[in-house]
Every structure is written in structure tokens, then in C-alpha cells.
Amino acid sequence: MLRGLAAMVSRAEPLAALEAKIAATTVDDTRLTTVPFLAQVGLRLDPDGPAAARLAAVLGSDLPGPNRAVAAGAHRVLWLGPDEWLVVAADGQEDSLVASLASAVGEDGGVIDLSSNRTGLELSGAFAREVLATCCTIDFHPRVFGPGQCVQTLIQKAGVLIDQRTDDTYLLLVRPSFAAYVAEWLLDGMLGLQADFSTR
């Protein structure tokens, strides 16, 4: 009963103050978009334990291995650690996800609603990889990284979970309090690339 009320509540976007700057900054087709209010559910279990098979049935896919993300039905499952995953779905799905995952996991792990724990930033376009190279040490070259892979790393000093969705689209999940800092780095990287691009 309590959870059903959530949809009625007025919610605030963590990056509301930066929205105009984000919208105004592009490099050719490359842009940043805020993705607030994603349903996110933390999953803790032993992948070799009894819950894994029950979960696979509910999720519609096996739990992904290291640095992998799988899309299954209406949600995406991201690997966070050897016994930790994050299930990401559209806004509003959190309660049903928690319920179905919890019933599959039972007493053999933990299921936790983390929908407010991170907010989304989508970086897309032909320059997306170069934007990331201005502030992130991970090698996103298509030879070593591509759609279906995810990585927990740093944008400078801020922790971030990066999920590559398509050839040139990355979803960055960031703690709300670090989101402005991360956005500022990405926007500044875009500014530099924009200057390069306009003189090409």
C-alpha cells in the first residue's frame, strides 16, 4: 500500500539545475541527456548457489559475468561484482521488480530497491567515446569494449557505472550527489571537442 503512493509524490531531478547547460552543449550529433527516475534494484547472491537458476527464470536470462550487461525483456542486468548485480528498468517498475526478484532469491541472497541511489546520464553520438576519453581512464575502443559491456570506474574523482547500450550510446549511472560533477566533466570534454570539430 505504501509503495503504491510513490508515483503520486512530487520528485526532483538531481540535475535540474544543469538541465539548460546540458541541453545547449553538443558536438555535432553527440549529446548528453539526463535519465532520472530509473528503476534500479540491487541483487546480491552466490551465482553458484540455488537462487541463480530461479532468478534466471524470472529475469529471462542468466546473470551476466564480469563487466557484462544483458538485456532481458523490459530490464537490463548489469554485473557489479562476483556476487552483485544491478537490475535497471523503466521508472515505476521498481516495486514489481523487487517483488518478483525477492521471491526468486528467497533467503539465498538480498534484493534491495536502489532506484534513488544513482541517477542516469546518457551520452550518445559519434564523439561519445572521445568525450569519455577526456575524463575516464577506461579503454572504450571497439576492439576491447562494446555494447553488452559495463564497467564500474571513475570519472575523475567520482564513481560511475557505465553501461554501453549501442555502438555510440553509453548510460552512466552516478550517485546523485556526484552527478553535477560528472556532468560538468562530460560537458567540458564536449566543449573541447566542439572547438576541435568546428575547426576541422
Binding site: 556526484f178 553535477a180 560533477y181 560538468e184
Partner: peptide, 12 residues
Amino acid sequence: RALGARFDPVRT
């Protein structure tokens, strides 16, 4: 470019 808002995270 670690200047201004990018020097250190300001968490709010």
C-alpha cells in the same frame, strides 16, 4: 581542466 566545478566533487 580540473578547475572550478571540476576541481573536486561538490556533493549536495
